[in-house]
Design a protein around this nucleic acid. Structure first.
Length: 118
DNA sequence: AGCGTGACAAGGT
DNA sequence: GACCTTGCCACGC
C-alpha cells in the first residue's frame, strides 16, 4: 500500500466522525486498519489542504486532550470549532465517555446503516 | 545510510 | 501531576 493511499484512508475515516462527536488518534488508526500507527494519523491531518472538507478538529489525543499546545491559534481554532458543535470541555479536556465516537453508539442513535434518516 | 523529529499511545516510575 | 521508555514510521536532512 502506497503512502498516499494510506493518507486517503485516514482522511476518509476522519470524515466519518459525526458532527458533535470526537475520536482519538489511536482510534482513527485502528478504524482505518492501521493499529499502533497513531502518529501517522497526526501526519495525515497536518498534510490536509484547506480545500479538503475533513473534520480534523474532531480528532483528539488520548484522554480527550487537544494535541496542539495551549494558547496557540490552532488550539483556539480547534476548541472554537468543537464548541460550535456543542462539544464542551471540562477544563483542558473533553469527556470521551460523553462525546467519544463509536460505531455502537451510532447504531443506538441512528439505527443500523441503511436505515438511517436525514 | 543514518539520525532527529513529530497534530501519538501505553505503560511505568 | 511530571517525566521516561518503548513501540511506531514517514520525512527531511
Amino acid at each position: 500500500m502506497g503512502t498516499l493511499e494510506t493518507y486517503q484512508r485516514i482522511w476518509r475515516t476522519v470524515s466519518a466522525i459525526p458532527r458533535g462527536r470526537v475520536a482519538t488518534y489511536g482510534q482513527i488508526a485502528d478504524l482505518a486498519g492501521l493499529p499502533r500507527r497513531a502518529r501517522l494519523v497526526g501526519r495525515a491531518l497536518k498534510l490536509l489542504e484547506d480545500e479538503q472538507p475533513v473534520p480534523w478538529y474532531r480528532v483528539l489525543r488520548a484522554g480527550g486532550r487537544i494535541a496542539f499546545t495551549r494558547g496557540t491559534p490552532q488550539y483556539r481554532e480547534q476548541r472554537a470549532r468543537l464548541a460550535e458543535e456543542g462539544v464542551l470541555f471540562e477544563g483542558d479536556h473533553i469527556d470521551l465517555e460523553r462525546y467519544g465516537w463509536s460505531d455502537a453508539l451510532d447504531r443506538i442513535l441512528w439505527g443500523p446503516p441503511g436505515e438511517r434518516e436525514r
